[in-house]
Design a protein around this nucleic acid. Sequence first.
DNA 1: ATGAAAGCGCTAACAA
DNA 2: TTGTTAGCGCTTTCAT
Lengths: 349, 349
Amino acid sequence: MKNGPRQRATIIDVAERAGVSKSTVARVLAGSASISDEARDRVLKAVAATGYERNHLAVGMRSGRSGMLGLVIPDITNPFWAEVARGAQDRAAKDDISLLVFSSDWDAGTEATHLRALRRARVDGAIINPVADNFDDLDRFGLPFVFIGSSAERFPDTLSVGSDIAQAVRLGMDILVERGHPAPALMLGPRSRLARARFLRAVHEHCIARDIDPDILLVEESDYTVEGGRKAMGRLLAGPWRGSRAVFVANDLMALGAMIAVREAGLRCPEDISILGFDGIPAGAFSWPGLTTIEKPGRQIGIRAVECLLDQIAGRPEHGRIFLPCRLVERGSLADVSASVAVRTAAGR
Amino acid sequence: MKNGPRQRATIIDVAERAGVSKSTVARVLAGSASISDEARDRVLKAVAATGYERNHLAVGMRSGRSGMLGLVIPDITNPFWAEVARGAQDRAAKDDISLLVFSSDWDAGTEATHLRALRRARVDGAIINPVADNFDDLDRFGLPFVFIGSSAERFPDTLSVGSDIAQAVRLGMDILVERGHPAPALMLGPRSRLARARFLRAVHEHCIARDIDPDILLVEESDYTVEGGRKAMGRLLAGPWRGSRAVFVANDLMALGAMIAVREAGLRCPEDISILGFDGIPAGAFSWPGLTTIEKPGRQIGIRAVECLLDQIAGRPEHGRIFLPCRLVERGSLADVSASVAVRTAAGR
DNA sequence: ATGAAAGCGCTAACAA
DNA sequence: TTGTTAGCGCTTTCAT
């Protein structure tokens, strides 16, 4: 049990050993041109010999650039956000930038605390999934930042990277129609969430384009959890049901819950009820049947967010709002009744 | 799109505004006792008025404490490691410490790069799941650190926090016996992994204690992935099978794969084959049947690792190696055949 | 091409 | 109790 620190070499040690001045060493390290080969050589050797490693704290202090970025997401334990974090990490590492990662738990107070920590740590910028309704600290935040995720929509004037929900919904409705479910039931999140409105709007747009009355769609509401999805599906199953037996669920966790409810009701998915999810969480691959879903580009969001932030910090032209396309992941939860839809509808309860 | 930085107040601004010296401000900020109420009052007011926030870079530079810790795990996208990260984050936040998180992808080179980044960032210490076989940089690492996870076992002389695999295996074998599967098949990870040996050793110890010949246990080998587990289960199903039809799988991903293979073979879990997993990943809750498994205390590991590291940094008595107990999570993948084991065995293929 | 020196924001002696 | 001062390790003029 001896793992302890040691005295670290500074630029002065290197300078002494190389027989040059601090400034020369700094120049070599910075890759400056005006350096004699001989000097550079001796400095490099001295660096190797002393095991010198630049002190980023000192650099940051002098230059005003800490070489760190902050990432504030709701919960690193949530697979989607973990993907985002991973993308951000990888992209940042490319530029030799470190990431300070925080989980806000969807709590405005916690978020505020984390943002303060980021400011004190003097990160060069931050990527944030905002939870506070009114980000009034926004102006006072005093740091370059980029918003990510659907909650960023509350701030249309702010740089942000998110998934293209409208495109995703279109993708979902299209495959549903193709499989013979032109009027699926909808299982949405809580009214308070902005993503819900956006989801619903996209569905309406689709319906209108297809000449379907959006109001004939059954709508059930839940809370984005497995248990919530289970209960909501129970309600759906207990009520009247028009059209083909398919549900477009606004999040995978609820979809998984819905699947359980179907089984509990003695029915089968997809034979009796088709389920289409939304998110692309890994667990969807292991359910039975596998969950057909729309996958959000989590990793890409992380990557683009870092790039966007870096550009902003460097004063490069800004990007505005970026919406990344989602992808259909076909597994087994969607039945194809396009050939027999009339029959099935008649036979339905 | 106006989110930009601003000029930040320094301790000098505060001092001027309060009409005191820098040192007085610093003292107030540090909570020093020797301060007149009047001075404290004026400083506090000035702090509020200027919106002053301590510059951690500067503090770190002067004091040698950056207030940051490093966390290097294989992959933040892996639910177990995400749990660990979350635990570490939460514990660190309590002490107002920030976490630099890196994913090594089980690659020694990547790990080395990340460790270098941590050193340059002058973190006060690091929590590492070591991937390098020989951590020969260990002495040269030059930072207080704590190892986490099973790979830490390669370094018995080093502070570490991990799960108690022996206890976990005992837990698993006990429930297996209780349910009438005294001699389950074993699905293990690759030979190269240290966790495998430890797992196997614990099984042997159990067997010997129960007077069972360990060699009668069927052993299949795979690679800790879902697909690997699926294939391995296929092999198991194709071969001869002694005793009750139960498999103790050394990781949940493989267990989920095994479940799929069972279904593909036209069999049912748990009626035909019982499966016991190991890890406690969330996806296990959504499979059908739910995966009965042994859950590793991921979050606790993160928490304890930070505490252990902080203690080490502060020079408090060290902890040595810590093994945290695992927990049985009962879902539906384990049949109870204790009453009818003789019959079933006879009926088995 | 190189060195000397100032200073980033803060803490910690040392004086007063 | 308070102020003065000397750096922490580095970058960056400004001279040379």
